[in-house]
């Protein structure tokens, strides 16, 4: 398992790649006022690539790890 540790926690990402998600997920994110360029910070990871809690636009949401990785684009290292 890849260790997602301190270097990611509480760091902000410029959200991107929303249009690469499936339409339903993209639509739901849009409805939450989330768009490319929104600031996303990581609050918590669940083990075994479980869901990720992120804070975007002053709200906390849980998303799947795969979606999170895509939204981070190349910023996740």
């Amino acid at each position: 398992m890849q260790l997602m540790s301190d270097n990611v926690m509480n760091k902000s990402f410029d959200l991107c790649n929303i249009e690469q998600l499936d339409t339903q997920t993209a639509q739901r994110l849009h409805s939450l006022g989330i768009h490319d360029g929104s600031l996303m910070s990581v609050v918590r990871f669940f083990p075994m690539h479980g869901p990720v809690i992120v804070e975007i636009e002053q709200q906390q949401i849980g998303i799947r790890y795969k979606v999170f990785k895509l939204l981070c684009g190349g910023q996740l290292q």
């Binding site: 997920t25 739901r28 709200q59 949401i61 849980g62 795969k66 979606v67």
Partner: peptide
């Protein structure tokens, strides 16, 4: 297939 729409508001 592995589902992707999983967005939960806290």
């Amino acid at each position: 297939k592995d589902s992707t729409v999983f967005i939960v508001e806290l």
